[in-house]
Amino acid sequence: MPKGLEKLNLSHNLYCGFILIRKNTIPSLKELDMSHNDLQAVYIHEALYRILLSYNDLTIACFNHENLRYLDISYNLHMPSEVCFEPTQIDTVIREGVAEGERLVGPISVRYYKPIK
């Protein structure tokens, strides 16, 4: 990757399976767009500001949400309501078509939230 890369747009490709971005592999990266692919799992350990993952087939999405301000996970129809990131710590989460409209529950809030059956 070029030094100083801040935005990476890999949308509308034929990526499938899973993506893993380890911490300090692209330290200057601020924004990642992987929308409109066929990803099932995403693991991002870099502290990004903006992540776009709409229109995939995600069931797992794990992020370092230290700096994350904007997340679009809309239209991932198989994504469950319990997620491994904390949605309450992200300024904007776009999630239409996710978890059948249920509230997203992260690792911190799962202690306080019990779904009504």
Rank of each mutant, 00 (worst) to 15 (best):
G106K: 03
T59F: 07
E102V: 02
L77R: 11
S28N: 08
Q89C: 04
V105H: 02
G17P: 01
L71G: 13
K30H: 04
V93M: 03
L20P: 00
D38T: 09
Y113Q: 10
L77N: 06
L29E: 01
V105N: 03
A47I: 02
L71H: 08
E82K: 14
N13D: 03
T88D: 13
C62N: 09
L104Y: 07
I90A: 08
I94D: 03
Y15N: 03
R95H: 06
K117T: 14
N56S: 12
L10Y: 00
A41I: 00
K30P: 00
N76W: 01
E96G: 09
P107Y: 11
C84H: 08
E46Q: 11
I73N: 02
G106A: 06
V42G: 03
R22C: 06
P107W: 04
L48C: 05
V83L: 03
M34A: 15
N9S: 12
C84E: 14
I116H: 11
L10G: 03
I90T: 03
S11N: 13
P115L: 07
L8R: 02
V110P: 00
Y15H: 07
F18K: 10
I19L: 15
F63G: 00
G17M: 04
D72P: 02
Y112S: 14
H12V: 07
P2D: 10
R95I: 07
T25I: 15
E100T: 05
L14T: 06
I73A: 08
Y43K: 10
V93E: 07
C84P: 06
M34K: 00
K7D: 06
E6T: 13
D38W: 14
E96S: 12
I26R: 00
E46V: 03
V42H: 02
E66K: 13
I116S: 14
G17T: 03
P115Y: 07
K23L: 14
L53Y: 01
E82D: 09
N64W: 07
N64L: 06
I108K: 14
S35Y: 04
I90W: 02
L39P: 00
P80N: 06
D72N: 15
C62F: 05
L68T: 10
N76K: 07
A99P: 00
H65N: 13
I60A: 04
C62R: 12
I94M: 08
A61H: 01
H36M: 05
F18Y: 13
E86M: 07
K114W: 11
L71A: 11
Y75E: 01
R69A: 12
C16E: 13
H45Q: 14
T92L: 07
P115N: 05
R103H: 08
D57S: 15
Y113S: 06
E31N: 05
Y113W: 09
H78E: 12
A61Q: 01
R69T: 12
M79K: 01
E96T: 13
L104H: 03
N67F: 09
S35P: 01
F85D: 02
M34C: 14
H78Q: 13
L29I: 00
Y113I: 15
V98C: 06
N37E: 11
F18P: 00
L5C: 06
E102M: 12
N56L: 08
D38V: 10
C16H: 12
M79E: 00
D33E: 05
E86I: 04
K30I: 05
L39A: 09
E82G: 02
N67K: 15
K3V: 04
N24T: 10
L29H: 03
Y70E: 10
L68P: 01
